[in-house]
Simulated scan of single mutants.
Amino acid sequence: MQLDAIDLHILATLQDEGRISNLELSEKVFLSPSACLRRVRLLEEAGIIRRYSAVLDTDRLGLEVDVFVEVTMRREDMSWHEDFVETISGFPEVVGCYIITGNASYLLRVKARDLKHYSAFVLEKLHKIPGVQDIRSNIVLQAIKETHALPTELLKDVAAGGRDS
C-alpha cells in the first residue's frame, strides 16, 4: 500500500490519540468523515494498523521493576531456539523478547512487582530453561524516553516512493 501525507497524518494522530472519534480524526486530517473512515479501514486491512491498545501506568499498577535481560544460549541442541521461544512466551513477566546481534542470543524486557519478584523470576523460571548459559540483568533506574509510537516523519520518503540511505 502506498502511503501519502494524509495517511501519515492519520497514523500519527491515531498513535497519539487511539480513542479519537472518526469525526474528530476527520477534522484533524481535513477529510470528510466517510473518506477518513475509508482510509482508516484500508490501513487496517493492509495490516499497517495491527491493533488498538491502551498504555498502562506500570508504577500505579505496582510493577516497579523494569529490566532489560541479555540471555546467552548454549547451542548443542538443534531445537534450542524453538524451545526457548515457546517457554518464554508463557512467562507473563516477559513483555518483549528480541533476537539480537552481539554476545547474547536474546534481549528480554521484563516487568516485575519488586526486586524479590524479579529474583524469583530469574531463579525459578529463566535460569531453569534448558540451554541458558548466561543471564545479564540491566535494571532500569529511570526511563528518559519511552514510546510505542513509530516516527511517521521517517516514513515520508517511503510514502513518496523513495528511500533515504
Rank of each mutant, 00 (worst) to 15 (best):
M1S: 14
D7Q: 05
L8P: 03
H9D: 10
I10G: 03
I10M: 04
T13L: 08
L14D: 07
E17C: 06
G18C: 07
R19Q: 15
R19A: 10
I20Q: 10
S21A: 09
L25Q: 07
L25Y: 04
S32C: 06
A35K: 06
C36L: 04
R38Y: 10
R39N: 05
R39I: 08
V40P: 08
E44C: 11
A46T: 06
G47D: 02
I48D: 04
I49W: 07
Y52H: 12
Y52L: 09
S53M: 11
V55Q: 11
L56E: 12
E64W: 08
E64M: 13
D66M: 09
E70N: 12
V71K: 05
T72R: 10
M73V: 02
R74K: 14
E76Y: 11
D77I: 08
W80M: 05
H81S: 10
H81F: 09
H81C: 09
E82P: 03
D83F: 03
S89N: 11
S89H: 08
S89Y: 01
P92Y: 02
V94K: 00
V94A: 02
V95I: 15
G96N: 15
C97W: 01
I99A: 09
Y106K: 04
V110I: 10
K111W: 00
K111S: 00
A112M: 01
A112D: 03
R113M: 01
R113H: 02
D114Y: 08
L115V: 04
L115A: 02
H117R: 07
F121A: 01
V122I: 15
L126C: 05
K128A: 08
I129M: 06
G131E: 08
V140G: 02
V140P: 06
V140Y: 02
A143W: 11
E146G: 12
T147W: 04
H148G: 11
H148S: 14
A149G: 07
A149H: 10
L150P: 05
L150C: 07
T152V: 15
T152W: 03
E153W: 15
L154F: 12
L155N: 05
L155W: 15
K156W: 10
A159E: 04
A159D: 05
D164Y: 12
S165V: 15
S165E: 13
